[in-house]
Write a protein that binds this DNA or RNA. Structure first.
Lengths: 217, 217
DNA sequence: CGCTCATTTGAATCTAATCAACTCCTGTGG
DNA sequence: CCACAGGAGTTGATTAGATTCAAATGAGCG
């Protein structure tokens, strides 16, 4: 299995809730790298909140289950990105490794945002949440999927218009407020429109990034 | 960690993006009250960000327009609630008074969150954004409208199960990712279900708050 | 190679959007 | 006081888009 291990992902945060940083570690007491097997739970709903995580390699999915049992995937996080912000003392979300992944964490004491680095991370997270909200509030299926793919590709940095999708169609669907079948059909339509090419089910090549952005922005 | 520093004036923040506070003014250099006529613009898309507003009386609507010209109403803010957080240096959203309203503001210097009161406001705002996201990501029309009405009624505090809606059906629709006709029909269905009563078009009485929460939570 | 699970594809159904007409409310002016 | 105008809201008919249910295909893994 090919494991992507990018040095860093920069770029503005995207719809999947990323906050990319270089040099984020300065001034933060980071834990040693914890390694997680595929599907391993990193934290659970109900856990005590307060730890913030940084992805070293791999990909993490953060989700939340509603009272009716429906799932919202709040974000996917790649190398260099930060996840784990919560507003209460108990976690409402849970996080899992989508593939073999490494994370480091630091403790956020009592909502202490005096460290401007942490404040920036929180603002970036807020921005990605706004972007996600805009997509769920205003876009249709094909627009959502287009925006999602552009967001993923942008964050994977230097490797051009190609991106691997470590998440399933069902994960994408629950992130975009759609069903997995609708996601599959939207991807198919994007191929017919010659805006993307699929290589297998989990690799996409963006053929016309501008058109995708026009659709999804 | 993440403990509340201070009792809130109202329940947990709701889907409309409210952060209600008593005594919020302590330690903040608030401006004098600015008064706004109905429909008056409080700030515009493109304005310099950095000021945070507190509603003294009335109601404020915050919205954002997408490139395609679609509108997302990110929140409605009532007396005691805080709005105006943005992630960049330029505002992406614009704010308008829905009725004769008063606001006071303070300046947030360069994302400075060292004041724990401001950090709390930001966390509350993040929580309301999460709630909004959950609704747009997982709920259908009648559930969205039920959740919206409960949220409004909860925030209007002491005046029992009755709430005035200073916003139009179209505003509600753009907040919930629906059309105004769908909102109107959902309200009608909630009446038929005997969960609410309408008094005119802009006043609702919640008859069965539990059932509404079951629908919308 | 064969199993399992993810994905795709198809058909039917259903929800919400769209387009259109009509009602209601409110404010204005004769 | 009543008539009228204009905007907001409701209601109806139709359409479009996404969901649901079901089956077939494909990919990865032992």
């Amino acid at each position: 299995m090919f494991m992507q291990r990018e040095p860093r992902s920069m770029g503005p945060s995207s719809i999947t809730g990323a906050a990319g940083y270089t040099g984020f570690a300065e001034g933060l007491k980071l834990s040693a790298t914890a390694r997680h097997r595929e599907k391993e739970l990193i934290y659970a709903q109900g856990d005590e909140a307060g730890d913030i995580f940084i992805v070293e390699f791999g990909c993490v999915r953060v989700s939340r289950i509603t009272l009716e049992g429906r799932r919202l995937v709040t974000g996917f996080y790649f190398a260099g990105e930060v996840f784990g912000f919560e507003t209460g003392s108990e976690r409402q979300c849970y996080a899992e490794a989508l593939e073999y992944s490494g994370t480091r964490k630091f403790h956020l004491e009592d909502r202490d945002l005096t460290n401007p680095r942490i404040a920036d991370m929180l603002f970036d997270y807020l921005e990605s949440t706004h972007q996600h909200l805009l997509i769920l509030g205003t876009q249709n299926a094909i627009e959502r999927v287009a925006a999602f793919l552009v967001g993923i590709a942008d964050r994977r940095g230097g490797d051009g218009p190609r991106a691997r999708l470590p998440m399933s169609r069902s994960d994408i669907a629950d992130h975009l407020g759609l069903t997995l079948e609708t996601v599959s059909r939207a991807i198919h339509r994007l191929q017919v429109l010659k805006l993307i090419t699929l290589v297998g089910a989990r690799d996409v090549i963006l053929l016309d990034r501008e058109a995708l952005i026009d659709l999804g922005a």
